[in-house]
């Protein structure tokens, strides 16, 4: 048995697929000042997963995925409801709903049925990246056969289609997302429905969070939704490049993070999240230093940027 093929390769592939799946919607969330929606969603899926498990009595991808998806969307609806009913700002409503749903999930985890199997809080928070084993490929050459990929670990089989679907959606609705994120009122006037687009983005984020949750846990989901996009935000002023950079940085963070974890023998998803946070800090510092040494660019007619960044609804 080749230990890299059996242990490291599946975990690494899962980490990369989860990173890409999360970075796609995350890039837009960060632009829209909604990074904490990812925080909320990644916590809110927990009760859905536990309820799906309690209902079916086994750990199966299908029902758990559906349960988590339902919980995420119910949670998003509850946030909107609480926000309106209690007249709260978005972040307070989010903080209220996601902590309550997560608390519900934690209590359900302690029920007798859930305690019997490998379903616990640590798992929910930081996943089981290391548990992914792929014994089928005996040698590198085996990977050339398409059929062997169908034997890949379950999280990978879930994450790859989700990442592809999200990429397709993003390309399809690229112009709609740009319009609705930049100027929702104008989107309405142009005959698009910004609320529908917001909902679709929430659903896409939930899908990514749910698919990644089982393998990497909620904390890494937040890191992957936010950190790559935050670095990309510092690199470019073009939407397409921003999304591309987000995916690129997500992959780099996953690879560096997983390798560090393998070297240090630490938790895979914890290390990747830590690398993500440190990478943002590094990017901010590098950008500051570069800005300091650059002389002011004088260009005709390019006045100072006087625009005030408005607080957009839906952000904290």
């Amino acid at each position: 048995m080749n230990p890299f093929l059996a242990i490291d390769l599946p975990a690494l592939l899962i980490a990369i697929a989860a990173s890409v799946a999360c970075a796609l919607p995350g890039s837009l969330l960060v632009l829209r000042g909604q990074a904490l929606l990812g925080d909320a969603l990644s916590h809110m899926v927990l009760p859905g997963i536990v309820v799906a498990f309690l209902a079916t009595g086994r750990i199966a991808s299908g029902p758990m995925l559906l349960g988590a998806l339902a919980a995420g969307l119910v949670g998003a609806g509850l946030i909107a409801l609480v926000r309106r009913a209690a007249k709260l700002e978005a972040s307070a409503a989010m903080g209220l709903v996601f902590t309550v749903l997560f608390a519900l999930g934690v209590v359900l985890l302690e029920t007798e049925a859930a305690r019997k199997v490998d379903l616990d809080l640590n798992h929910a928070l930081y996943g089981h990246l290391e548990a992914a084993l792929w014994l089928e490929p005996r040698a590198w050459s085996d990977l050339a056969a398409p059929s062997i990929w169908l034997t890949a670990p379950r999280p990978l089989l879930m994450l790859v289609p989700v990442a592809l679907a999200l990429a397709v959606l993003l390309v399809l609705a690229y112009k709609e997302l740009r319009l609705a994120s930049f100027d929702p009122d104008y989107a309405t006037l142009q005959g698009f429905r910004p609320r529908l687009i917001d909902f679709a983005l929430t659903a896409a984020t939930t899908l990514a969070a749910v698919a990644a949750f089982e393998a990497v846990g909620s904390i890494l989901v937040i890191a992957l939704l936010t950190c790559p996009a935050a670095i990309a935000r510092l690199c470019t002023d073009r939407l397409g490049a921003h999304i591309g950079f987000s995916v690129l940085f997500a992959t780099i963070i996953a690879v560096i993070g997983y390798n560090s974890a393998a070297q240090l023998e630490t938790s895979g998803s914890g290390t990747i999240a830590a690398v993500g946070g440190l990478a943002v800090a590094l990017a901010v510092i590098v950008r500051r230093l570069r800005l300091r040494v650059k002389p002011p660019v004088a260009s005709p007619g390019n006045g100072p940027n006087t625009a005030v960044r408005p607080l957009r609804p839906g952000s904290a």
């Binding site: 709609e176 740009r178 104008y186 005959g191 002023d237 073009r238 921003h242």
Partner: peptide, 29 residues
């Protein structure tokens, strides 16, 4: 719209913004 009503830090070029006026003609997707 009022200038203060949008996020000017959004990554879009002047041309991208003007093209938004033609999105209706393009339609969904």
């Amino acid at each position: 719209p009022q200038r203060a009503s949008v996020d000017w830090d959004f990554p879009a070029s002047a041309l991208d913004v003007v093209a938004m006026g033609l999105y209706r003609k393009l339609g969904w997707f």
